[in-house]
């Protein structure tokens, strides 16, 4: 009996150690995977919560975006991940970025704001006399400005390098845009 108890205790300890092993491994998870990490508790609770993870490759984004009916794209995350909006026309206030020829995920174009959200942007416009897109920090065409020619993109503002012409860092700061002649 004693021997059996000892074996059982040993087994329980082993089980506790094994159970502890995955927990001990979790601090090693890298910081950049934070969004994925936060999604885990919802999974454990068994809730089928929809969690947006950044897209893994630019190609994924290119295919999804090109199929949509819009030509200047703004994405919530780097490398075209997360929520997005797409415009063939101007949007003077991204708090309410709707208007003609606007599209995007989850009804972007109605009462769905995209103000101070964009982290990657892409001008996949049509050939035009006015195919450069100018982004501003303010609504109604105010504030610092940045410009993208047709075909160009910025993939990741979170790196902190890109800035508007008034020095404002680009990440999560675009509040309006309009099409114009050229960027030079």
């Amino acid at each position: 009996m004693r021997r059996i108890h000892l074996v059982m205790a040993g087994g329980a300890m082993l089980a506790a150690l094994l159970a502890g092993a995955p927990a001990a491994a979790s601090p090693a998870q890298p910081g950049p995977a934070g969004s994925a990490h936060q999604a885990a508790p919802a999974d454990r609770d068994g809730r089928a919560e929809r969690v947006d993870l950044p897209r893994s490759t630019p190609q994924d984004g290119a295919r999804a975006a090109a199929a949509a009916d819009g030509y200047f794209y703004a994405y919530e995350h780097a490398w075209w991940g997360g929520r997005w909006c797409a415009w063939a026309g101007n949007a003077s206030n991204w708090v309410n970025p709707g208007g003609a020829a606007t599209t995007g995920q989850w009804g972007c174009g109605g009462d769905y704001g995209f103000d101070n959200i964009a982290t990657s942007v892409w001008n996949n416009g049509v050939y035009h006399d006015y195919d450069a897109v100018r982004m501003r920090t303010g609504a109604f065409l105010t504030g610092g400005s940045m410009c993208l020619s047709r075909g160009d993109y910025w993939a990741d503002f979170t790196l902190g390098y890109q800035a508007f012409d008034d020095g404002t860092p680009a990440d999560n700061q675009i509040s309006s845009h309009y099409w114009g002649v050229s960027c030079s």
Binding site: P58, Q59, N124, V126, R150, G151, Y153, Y161, Q162
Partner: peptide
């Protein structure tokens, strides 16, 4: 056809060209 038009005009995949800008970021294009 619209997707094909944009791919023919702007490139199928937005990769290949790169410019490190004096103001900061990296601008890229197909």
């Amino acid at each position: 056809r619209r997707e094909a038009f944009l791919a023919t005009l702007n490139g199928a995949r937005p990769e290949g060209l790169e410019a490190r800008l004096p103001s900061g970021g990296v601008m890229r294009r197909s």
